[in-house]
């Protein structure tokens, strides 16, 4: 397992000006950092020989609904070498829901980011193929946003006509 201290010193050493925060809950490390630095930090975490977080397990977002900074993008990465997980959290400023893509760092991030875009409407700058993952291309809404009703918007996706069958 990677300890919070080791991660702290490593990051301080590499990014002296980075404004980050490490917290621990139920033995899980969470690293909160500003959205603009996400790509360089990810690159460092992947390539540093002592950390080697070479596997991107999951990317998702959280919609905080009424907070000022509404969205948080969450990355869940895994290191074989230390057999440990790390969660990165990048808060987006409410003015724009855009963040740089990390698909250049981990190839696996490609579909996860597409899914996050589909569900939350967060745009990933520089993503090679930012399409909807699950819902039809002409669907306008992003269902996991908190203001989207569970039963959806009526008639937002057309159904085939029931002709005069028997």
């Amino acid at each position: 397992m990677i300890s919070a201290e080791l991660l702290n010193t490593k990051l301080k050493e590499q990014f002296p000006e980075l404004d980050f925060e490490i917290s621990e809950f139920r033995d899980e490390l969470t690293l909160a950092l500003p959205a603009n630095n996400i790509v360089e930090v990810c690159k460092y975490l992947k390539t540093n020989p002592e950390l080697e977080f070479i596997m991107c397990m999951d990317i998702t977002a959280i919609d905080w609904s009424r907070r000022k900074d509404r969205f948080t993008v969450v990355y869940n990465i895994f290191s074989f070498k230390n057999n440990s997980r790390l969660r990165l959290k990048a808060n987006l400023k409410n003015t724009d829901n855009k963040i740089d893509t990390v698909s250049s760092v981990w190839e696996a991030a490609n579909w996860h980011e597409r899914e996050t875009f589909d569900m939350y409407g967060i745009e990933f700058n520089g993503h090679p193929d930012l399409r909807r993952m699950y819902l039809p291309e002409d669907f306008e809404y992003h269902p996991l946003q908190k203001d989207f009703p569970l039963m959806g918007i009526p008639d937002s996706i057309p159904l085939p006509k029931k002709e005069n069958d028997r």
């Binding site: 269902p143 569970l150 039963m151 959806g152 159904l159 029931k162 069958d165």
Partner: peptide
Amino acid sequence: YRTYSVVQGIDQFLP
């Protein structure tokens, strides 16, 4: 599945 993406009964478009 009472959700936004599931058709609530296929009899809406099939006999």
